[in-house]
Design a protein around this nucleic acid. Structure first.
Length: 820
DNA sequence: TCTGGTTGTG
């Protein structure tokens, strides 16, 4: 074969191309293919005969063989055959070889030029396609024909540059060719230039199915659902029936408009008209039903498909992933591989999101590696963003940040993903830092999604002023009724102690979905207003809003914090029997917490024993927390033993257990628990409190002695201590976890971070100004008591938000009624 | 050799 090639001296290839010598290391089956091809060439003469041979070239190597044989036999001199080779290389994805072959054709005709243009378009080289047409129009004397413009207009809509070509079309007089006109209309729809599209469409002398579909799909793909539906109505009024193309265009609109009924009616139409075997239609139905959460329908359609393509597999994988069944999504991925389908970029995006849900870090790394090997992460922001999100959800924030930093094509969503990643892992400072960097970048402007990412970070650390500034920006662009932003703002104001503002926001946003209801219920729960939560729940039902599992989580938490045990039990019952929501471990945790706080430790314990799910750390942790409050060492020991079986890494639980022992002065046990934690390499999270003053957030750690005002703060606290004692305060040493003398215990209590922050606030604000602080852990019982005294003595309203809830102190009384 | 169709991240 090499000999054959080296003797080849055709006008197409004056000397053998290097590609030939490298690619002609043939395998034995390829060799037999060559023999078959060469025999075929000898026997064939008409261009129809050659089509059969061309169709056999499904691999680049085989195409090159055929190419070489055509050169040798001299048949490549035919323009038709040479041009057909341009097409074959295009079909095989080798646009460079396609161009090389094109350049070698001595007398190009319109078919040759059109084939080259199509080759570029087929391979995504849109700019090159437009340049190629310009080259044809300006440098050759070949006149474009009806085939020239449709593919290049397809390229134009992607690079958003089609006016010049439209002028050419007009000049040459192809404006009213059905294909060309449809392509133009579709292009203008995609540009959002609806007026031009409408005018062109209206002026068309004749409209075929393709024209109607071009305009409908153009509107659909531009996200303009109403226009698309209105054209669809016109089409049906003119007595034109929908075909498979119309249906696969319109189905995504049904999902977008939350119109399941319309989607199902179309399904009936499809069955009636025998269109259900169209792969595009089936795929579109899988996607639509998945978006409505109707997985069983998606699955049924997938099962009934006779022919499935890659999109079908991607769709069913995404369907399970989007409906929170990551393991099923992965199952379908393996199934897809068994069916010999190669994963593409979109498969990987769904897989990354599935792995994010399963939190399997090993699989996460392999997904990341795969996307690097295929260079997808270098070329596409979506897969990069999915990987950043995946690492963040797994909790590997360093990896997430590294991938984010190295993303060559970042978009706004990349930034939002990184910010959300930090926020959801409780790293508000890092989130705010990334947000700041983003604002400094000229290429990116924060908008809805970014604010949705950053507002929870502000809420988390109680940065009300920054949050309000963001609210201002939201108002400025008129997004204040956006349900996502509105919910974030409800959460922000609620968590910053501004319940009135939270309620104001709540009444501003659309309330048809349970999400804003959940936010406002949860805010009231945080403040211990359990009865208000129950009232809001009744209002929600009156307005016909269907509660979801988060609604019940918020309600149960609220009941737990307010001691509303009976209402909590009612909610738990209604959730399952009226709304068919299966309780998750979180719901069980809330119930245990509720019984436990109310002192019904035995009920809580029995409740755990009867759970149908295996209790996790949060469930046992709730029981342990209750044992700590009510001083039940025996049950506490039982809970902590079970707790450390399921989670031995969370330092908070060791602290809880050692607190419980310390309360009873069982110091040897305290040491035991502490050394256990130490042996496992765990460190107690240092307690800190923050306060926002004059646009600055000051952070105080327990025992802080480095603050510029620390001497003054401690001096004032000592004076205050004396005043409190005269009003009946006795320090509760139960909250001191060290076995030291009483004097020292008192000093330890006085240096708790929340007191330092409160005193700093008092010293630096005018009298009667309310003080608001945030504490990263739970406020201890003694500090709670002391804050009541401070609010009375200093005549200040003091709002303390800790990791658990809100405490509002006024005139020596706490809003929680000391139930917390 | 051509148009109009389905799947993606926060």
């Amino acid at each position: 074969m090499r000999g054959l090639l080296s003797t080849c001296k055709s006008s197409l290839f004056p000397k053998p191309l290097p590609a030939f010598s490298t690619h002609f290391r043939l395998k034995s089956n390829s060799a037999s293919c060559i023999v078959a091809l060469s025999t075929g060439i000898e026997q064939r003469n008409s261009k129809f005969d050659f089509e059969h041979l061309f169709n056999k070239c499904t691999k680049t190597g085989t195409a090159k063989c055929l190419h070489a044989l055509l050169i040798v036999s001299g048949k490549v001199q035919s323009i038709f055959i040479a041009t057909r080779l341009v097409n074959i290389y295009a079909y095989l994805g080798d646009v460079l070889l396609s161009r090389e072959t094109f350049d070698q054709v001595p007398r190009k005709d319109a078919y040759t030029w059109n084939s080259m243009v199509s080759s570029y378009v087929r391979n995504g080289c849109y700019r090159e396609a437009v340049n190629c047409v310009n080259e044809m129009l300006l440098t050759s004397d070949v006149r474009p024909d009806f085939y020239t413009f449709p593919p290049v207009l397809k390229a134009c809509r992607t690079i958003r540059d089609g006016t010049r070509l439209h002028c050419w079309v007009f000049k040459i007089g192809f404006q009213w060719d059905v294909f060309v006109a449809a392509s133009l209309v579709h292009m203008y729809c995609r540009f959002g230039s609806f007026d031009i599209a409408h005018k062109l469409f209206k002026d068309m002398p004749s409209r075929d199915m393709g024209c109607w579909n071009a305009v409908i799909s153009g509107f659909c793909q531009n996200g303009n659902a109403n226009e698309a539906l209105s054209v669809l109505d016109d089409m049906r009024l003119e007595g034109v029936d929908m075909d498979a193309v119309t249906i696969s265009s319109i189905l995504p609109i049904c999902a977008q408009k939350h119109d399941l009924l319309h989607g199902m009616l179309i399904h009936l139409y499809v069955i009636k008209n025998g269109l259900e075997f169209d792969v595009f239609v089936s795929n579109a139905f899988i996607n639509m039903y998945a978006k409505f959460g109707k997985l069983e329908f998606s699955q049924r359609i997938f099962d009934q498909m006779v022919v499935r393509d890659l999109v079908s597999w991607n769709s069913i994988i995404a369907a399970y992933e989007q409906n929170d069944y990551p393991h099923d999504a992965l199952k379908f991925f393996y199934e897809m591989q068994r069916n010999k389908f190669q994963a593409d970029l979109l498969t990987l995006v769904s897989l990354a999101s599935s792995i994010a849900q399963t939190r399997d870090s090993l699989s996460g790394k392999s997904i990341h590696g795969f996307s690097i090997r295929r260079c997808w992460i270098m070329e596409d922001a979506v897969i990069g963003n999915a990987v950043v999100d995946m690492y963040a959800k797994i909790g590997a924030l360093d990896s997430a940040r590294k991938v984010f930093e190295e993303l060559p094509c970042k978009d706004t969503i990349s930034w939002n993903t990184m910010i959300t990643g930090y926020t959801q892992n409780g790293l508000a400072d890092e989130a705010i830092e990334v947000y700041r960097i983003m604002k400094d970048c000229e290429d990116f402007t924060p908008y809805q999604g970014t604010w949705v990412s950053i507002l929870p970070a502000y809420a988390h650390i109680g940065a009300l002023r920054d949050g309000m500034r963001t609210h201002g920006q939201v108002l400025k662009v008129g997004l204040d009724t956006d349900v996502f932003l509105g919910t974030c703002l409800i959460d922000l104001y609620g968590k910053c102690g501004r319940l009135d503002d939270a309620m104001f926001m709540f009444y501003e946003v659309p309330r048809a979905s349970p999400v804003p209801w959940n936010a406002i219920i949860s805010c009231h729960g945080l403040h211990g207003h359990g009865e208000t939560c129950m009232q809001l729940f009744r209002d929600m039902l009156d307005e016909g809003v269907k509660p979801d599992h988060v609604t019940f989580l918020s309600l149960l938490t609220a009941c737990s914090h307010s001691g509303l045990v009976d209402q909590g039990k009612w909610c738990f019952d209604v959730m399952q029997h009226k709304y068919g929501i299966k309780p998750t471990l979180k719901h069980y945790g809330c119930m245990v917490d509720m019984f436990g706080r109310a002192g019904r430790l035995d009920v809580a314990y029995n409740f755990i024993e009867c759970m149908p799910l295996r209790p996790d750390a949060s469930v046992w942790g709730a029981l342990l927390g209750a044992c700590r409050i009510h001083g039940n060492v025996e049950l506490g020991k039982k809970a902590s033993d079970r707790l450390f079986e399921v989670d031995s890494e969370n330092v908070g639980y060791y602290v809880l257990m050692s607190n419980l022992y310390a309360k009873f002065g069982r110091w040897e046990r305290v040491d035991e628990v502490r050394s256990l934690a130490r042996d496992r390499g765990l460190r107690k999270t240092p307690g800190w409190s923050s306060i926002e003053l004059h646009n600055r957030i000051e952070v105080f750690y327990t025992g802080n002695q480095t603050h510029p005002q620390h001497e003054e703060i401690y001096k004032e606290l000592a004076i205050l201590n004396a005043k409190m004692k005269s009003l009946g305060y006795t320090p509760d040493y139960n909250f001191v976890l060290q076995d030291v003398e009483d004097d020292e215990k008192e000093n330890i209590l006085t240096s708790h971070s929340e007191r330092l922050a409160i005193m700093y606030g008092i010293l630096n604000t005018p009298p009667r100004t309310p003080i608001q602080i945030y504490k990263n852990l739970r406020v201890c019982g003694d500090c709670h008591n002391v804050t009541k005294f401070i609010s009375k003595i200093m005549e200040r309203e003091i709002i303390v938000r800790d990791s658990n809830r809100f405490h509002q102190f006024k005139d020596g009384i706490c809003s929680c009624g000391d139930y917390w």
